[in-house]
């Protein structure tokens, strides 16, 4: 007698269930919203996943154990793209801690020579900690940033130790304050200098951020009163329900509640301002994505059946692409909106 194999129904991956349940494309079409790319003003490069910190919410899953680094050939290719595309005015460097890429200083200096506005997502503590793998010091960073007139954008989840250390690790608040004071010494965030120092707030848990305006007032008052710190703007960002933060939500049994909150807070005018309409994101290996979150979800930009990379970069094709959306995009369109520059409304 022949043996009959009974196949069990295949289990649908949880991510696909989540995508179907929280359908961003459907939300757009129900509101009759189309979000084509506008232009590319910013080239955002994730040049390393190595970081001296291991933050609870990090969508990159960055840590001292990561090894991914953009190589010199790719860095040079990015510089060529910046040089030959005048409409790209900004270079936005992120990671990990971007300063831990061995070609970081070179990239900043060369981009500055090209007259590009360079922004660095600087975690503050790397100045104090140095490279967690080689032990190399990074104490020169505040001066280096001042010399190259870099816009420094730094995560500071709260103006007090408790929330900051809970999200970013024990001792991070104290080191962050030390590092901010070094930036202030160079003139960053001070009136009368054009050296910009902006902070990024994102909630420490499964809740939406308070208003950017109110939090900025609190941050300025409290940080100045206690430490004499000055800075320019506070960017308020919503936590993206992907990777490490999504796992945390699932662990807490709060994922659905959080997603329902984001969906309920969907704001069509915030959707108009989403950053993927004017930015492209590049990974350490040169692949191109609609944003840093899509990059972490490996949602490659595919044009003419080929992944778009820095090596087959085509500006016209990129501005005519369809941006890929997923359930995580509700994070950028909730309430006042969320982007690398804070609220979008």
């Amino acid at each position: 007698m022949s043996q009959v194999t009974v196949l069990r129904p295949r289990e649908i991956p949880q991510d696909r269930v989540d995508e179907a349940k929280y359908n961003f494309n459907k939300a757009l079409s129900e509101k009759n919203i189309d979000l084509p790319p506008q232009n590319i003003e910013t080239l955002q490069i994730n040049i390393t996943k190595l970081c001296n910190q291991t933050c609870l919410h990090c969508h990159v899953d960055a840590s001292p154990k990561r090894k991914e680094q953009m190589d010199l050939e790719s860095v040079d290719r990015c510089l060529e793209i910046l040089s030959s595309n005048k409409s790209i005015k900004n270079l936005d460097l992120t990671g990990g801690a971007p300063e831990l890429n061995p070609h970081f200083d070179y990239l900043v200096k060369e981009a500055t020579k090209l007259d590009k506005h360079v922004m660095v997502r600087h975690n503050l503590t790397v100045t104090i900690d140095g490279n967690p793998v080689t032990g190399e010091t990074k104490e020169y960073l505040p001066e280096f940033y001042a010399e190259n007139r870099v816009e420094v954008i730094s995560s500071l989840p709260y103006y007090q130790e408790y929330f900051t250390d809970k999200q970013r690790g024990k001792g991070v608040f104290e080191k962050s304050i030390e590092s901010i004071l070094l930036l202030n010494e160079q003139g960053f965030g001070k009136q009368g200098t054009s050296l910009e120092l902006n902070f990024v707030y994102n909630p420490v848990g499964a809740f939406l951020p308070a208003s950017q305006e109110n939090l900025e007032t609190d941050f300025k008052r409290e940080l100045h009163k206690k430490y004499g710190i000055e800075f320019n703007n506070l960017f308020v960002i919503t936590n993206m329900p992907i990777n490490r933060f999504k796992q945390q939500l699932k662990r807490l049994g709060a994922y659905d509640e959080y997603m329902e909150k984001l969906v309920k807070a969907f704001n069509p005018s915030a959707a108009q301002g989403v950053m993927c309409r004017s930015l492209i994101s590049v990974s350490h290996d040169g692949r191109i994505y609609d944003c840093d979150f899509n990059q972490m979800l490996e949602m490659d930009v595919i044009i003419d059946h080929e992944p778009m990379t820095i090596f087959n970069f085509d500006y016209e094709k990129l501005v005519n692409r369809r941006i890929m959306f997923g359930s995580h995009c509700f994070g950028c369109t909730a309430g006042s909106g969320s982007s690398c520059g804070g609220a979008t409304t």
Binding site: Q160, P203, G205, F207, P209, A210, S211, N214, L215, D218
Partner: peptide, 12 residues
Amino acid sequence: TTQCLESGADPE
């Protein structure tokens, strides 16, 4: 508790 957090209050 959630409303307090979402309006910028802290546990203290």
